[in-house]
């Protein structure tokens, strides 16, 4: 083999090695960030961060976001943007509490919460898929509808969940079981079934997916169904945690979910590189950061500054702007 050929081969091998390292770094960075943050705060707070009480607090705080973000990941995977999550959460919570007050039944309250969330998510999906409206716009419309309805439903401005239902539901053990089950089920659905695979394919190239025989509308609607179910469960646990529902419940949830997914290293443009671990990692990182910095008594301005820096870091290091940015065009 000539010298020139050898040099070219060596150069090619180097480029490939760099690409592999870059790929591994991009995938590993969100995980590494979480591990580093946990280690750093454990040391900086002299162990307070790892105390059982604090870990319980972290689970309680991140629980609802993890569930909502897991569901939303299916929607982001096919490249849609849903800004109705907060409003649907609010409607679900209000409906659930009204049902709970009327029937004094936790089961009924849960089923109502789930049903409302599922119904609203389906409406978003059907408007988007069947009427050809962009998902962002259809979700915005549903968001407005929910806000208007909620105001009519609540005379007093606030309604309180019966205590016996809260006591039965709002327990760390229950939450651990629910979250583990949700993660396992979502992993299987996202990585091992057509629902996840096809949604990622649609996110990669919807036209190509359709031509390959994928029923695009069907799988997009299924993604919204999954999101609706998980959002319903999340909303029920949220209302049991905060005890009272009002028209500000769930406010800003869609932004928190979006940030969690991006912080976890997944682009909300979707596509084949979507991964179900991102919402879990991102949600945990969000709360580990705010919890740890509060334990360290860091000034509130610095907390926001550091969160912003880390967010930029993730965007800068994880997302290859040429191939797939963090955000939709």
């Amino acid at each position: 083999m000539g010298t020139k050929t050898k040099a070219l081969n060596a150069e090619s091998a180097q480029v490939e090695a760099k690409a592999q390292i870059g790929k591994i770094a991009r995938v590993a960075l969100p995980y590494a960030g979480l591990v580093i943050a946990v280690i750093f705060f454990s040391i900086a707070t002299k162990g307070s961060f790892l105390q059982l009480d604090n870990l319980t607090t972290l689970i309680n705080q991140s629980f609802t976001l993890i569930l909502a973000a897991l569901g939303a990941t299916f929607i982001y995977a096919h490249g849609s943007l849903d800004v109705s999550l907060g409003s649907i959460c609010m409607m679900s919570c209000i409906s659930s509490v009204l049902a709970a007050v009327a029937t004094q039944s936790g089961v009924v309250a849960f089923l109502v919460c789930l049903g409302v969330s599922l119904l609203c998510s389906l409406i978003v999906a059907l408007i988007s898929c069947k009427l050809g409206v962009v998902a962002f716009v259809s979700s915005l419309c549903v968001s407005f509808i929910c806000q208007g309805l909620a105001g009519e439903m609540l005379d007093t401005g606030e309604i309180v969940m019966p205590t016996h239902i809260i006591e039965a539901v709002d327990r760390p053990a229950v939450k651990v079981i629910v979250i583990v089950a949700a993660i396992v089920i979502c992993y299987v659905l996202f990585e091992r079934t057509k629902i996840g695979v096809y949604n990622k394919a649609i996110g990669g190239n919807a036209a190509a997916a359709e031509q390959s025989g994928v029923n695009v509308h069907k799988y997009k609607i299924l993604a919204y169904v999954i999101s609706g179910v998980l959002l319903g469960v999340s909303s029920f646990f949220l209302i049991c945690r905060i005890s009272a529902a009002s028209t500000t419940t769930g406010s800003g949830l869609h932004m928190d979910v979006m940030l969690a997914v991006i912080l976890g290293g997944m682009s909300i443009r979707g596509g084949p590189k979507s991964n179900i671990a991102a919402p879990v990692i991102g949600s945990l990182t969000t709360y580990v950061l705010s919890n740890g910095l509060t334990l360290m008594r860091v000034d509130a301005y610095y907390v926001q500054f550091i969160q912003g820096i880390i967010f930029l870091l993730i965007i800068f290091c994880v997302f290859d702007k040429k191939k797939h940015g963090a955000l939709p065009n």
Binding site: S48, Q51, D53, N54, T57, N60, Q61, T64, L238, R241, I242, A244, S246, T248, T249, S251, G252, S290, N291, T294, L295, R297, A300, V303, Q304
Partner: peptide
């Protein structure tokens, strides 16, 4: 700390208690 809304206030309280 900053906390907005019912959940934000609860999270703020929990974190401060832990501190």
């Amino acid at each position: 700390v900053v906390g907005n809304g019912a959940e934000g206030n609860l999270q703020g309280v929990e974190s401060l208690i832990q501190s």
